[in-house]
Each structure stands twice: as structure tokens, then as C-alpha cells.
């Protein structure tokens, strides 16, 4: 089933914790949808006055302009370390990072793994669009084998570039994380499930239980050179073969 994005976003009213500033995402990009879901969650949990967004370097770099909560911009890849610093000195804050695959799973691998391994009481939202969106479509650590990008013009060759990293599964190997899941947004059912997962991840933090990671398979219509509809069916038919959906850790 393919989904019209305009209809999808109408699922939600404009959340109170969103500002009036316009998103700078391309039309049909899932980044916008996740941003709304998070805002909606912040509303539901009533944490707008103590939430802090740590923005990455990527298409969502100026996310702090869209949330009506405090925000900080981290160096490329370092969001989990920045979040750690904030949370350790003020545990009352609800600190979440929002990071792309290049940011979290390439340059930020060390910070991302070690924050999880320490069981930092933070929430990590991981936007896996299998590409470097902001810099114009280069290969990401999550790019699937065979996928063409501007820096693997003949398609990702596992002999040279290795295989896509399943980061949720990597994190799930650690003892500390309390909730680790992979979600997608290609149909209505998935969107509802992803919303529930995001809410649960924030709840973990509110309850002081520890580290959670929500990996979300998303699109990049611009750099995939696909329409949003084509992108959805690509996600549903191709991408989930590399990245299975589901919960990998769910500790009480």
C-alpha cells in the first residue's frame, strides 16, 4: 500500500510543542513526520518544559527552531556525548538526541555505543534513511548493498565498503539499554507503531529506567531520486529485507 504524505500528517493536530517555524525538509520527507511524532509525544507526556533536544549535523540540524523546548546543536556525531553531559548535571531534564545514520552510525559510532553501554538515561531517535541527506546523497553506513549513491556510483559493493550496519542489533548486544527497537513509516499501521515506540522510549527516561534507542527506517526522496510513493514501496519491499523491524531489547 502506498500512502499519500499529506493525508498522513493530518493524523495529528499541530502539536503544542512545535513552533510556527516552517520545516526545511524536502516535500514528502519522513524527517518531518518523525519531528511531528516527537512533538506530539512531548505534548502527551507533558514534558515540554523540561525537554532538551540535541540536534545532529544533518538535514535536521536546525530542529531546535521547530520545538518549543530547549535545544542544543552538537558537533557531527557527538550528540550522545553532549546529551550525556547535560543529563549527568541535570537529571531532571528529559534529554533526547535525534540523529541521522551518518551522524550516529559513522562518525559518531564511538559516542553512540558508549552512551548506550553506560546506560545513560537518555532517548536516542535514530533516523536511518540509508544516505547522507544533507551533503547531497553520499553512501551512509546503512546504505544497502547495491544501492547507488554519489560516492558509490556503481552501487554499494560489500567487497569495498562492507555491509550495512544494523545499529539497533549492535546496541542490543550491550547489557545496559532498556529499550531498543526498529520501526518504519511506510503505512498507517507502521506510523502508529512508531509513534507508540517513541512514546515508550521517552517514558523509559521519564521513569528513570535508562537508555533507549528508536531506529526508524525513513526515506530521502530527493537523494534516492524517487517520488515519496516510490520511496515508500522501496522501503517496504527492499529496505526491510536488510533491516528487519521489531523490538530487540525490552527490559522491565
Amino acid at each position: 500500500m502506498s500512502v499519500n504524505m499529506d493525508n498522513m500528517v493530518k493524523v495529528f493536530e499541530r502539536p503544542r510543542s512545535l513552533t510556527d517555524a516552517q520545516f526545511s525538509y524536502c516535500p514528502g520527507c519522513h524527517h518531518g513526520l518523525v519531528t511531528r511524532i516527537i512533538a506530539h509525544t512531548i505534548d502527551e507526556l507533558g514534558i515540554q518544559d523540561r525537554a532538551v533536544v540535541v540536534t545532529p549535523v544533518g538535514c535536521s540540524v536546525i530542529m531546535y527552531e521547530w520545538f518549543r523546548c530547549d535545544g542544543i546543536q552538537a558537533a557531527h556525531g557527538r550528540a550522545c556525548a553532549v546529551a550525556t553531559g547535560i543529563k549527568r548535571v541535570n537529571p531532571n531534564l528529559i534529554v533526547f538526541t535525534y540523529q541521522g545514520d551518518g551522524d550516529l552510525a559513522a562518525i559518531g559510532t564511538a559516542e553512540s555505543i558508549h552512551a548506550a553501554n553506560r546506560g545513560e538515561n537518555i532517548t536516542v531517535v535514530f533516523i536511518n534513511n540509508q544516505i547522507y541527506g544533507m551533503t547531497g546523497g553520499q553512501m551512509a553506513p546503512t546504505t544497502v548493498v547495491g544501492q547507488r549513491t554519489t560516492s558509490c556510483p556503481n552501487g554499494r559493493n560489500a567487497q569495498i565498503a562492507g555491509y550495512p550496519i544494523r545499529f539497533a542489533e549492535v546496541i542490543a548486544q550491550l547489557d545496559a539499554p532498556v529499550y531498543v527497537t526498529r520501526q518504519a513509516l511506510y503505512d498507517q499501521k507502521r506510523i502508529m507503531a512508531a509513534s507508540r515506540a517513541i512514546k515508550k522510549a521517552f517514558q523509559c527516561q521519564v521513569e528513570g529506567r535508562g537508555y533507549s534507542l528508536v531506529e526508524i527506517l525513513t526515506n530521502c526522496p530527493t537523494n534516492w531520486r524517487m517520488s515519496p510513493v516510490e520511496a515508500n514501496s522501496h522501503l517496504m519491499n527492499e529496505v526491510i529485507r536488510t533491516f528487519p523491524l521489531g523490538d530487540f531489547v525490552d527490559r522491565d
Partner: peptide, 8 residues
Amino acid sequence: GYPITPQN
């Protein structure tokens, strides 16, 4: 290398 604008 690693991607970064304006040297991509």
C-alpha cells in the same frame, strides 16, 4: 575522505 560540503 568523508563527505562535507563544499568539498564533496
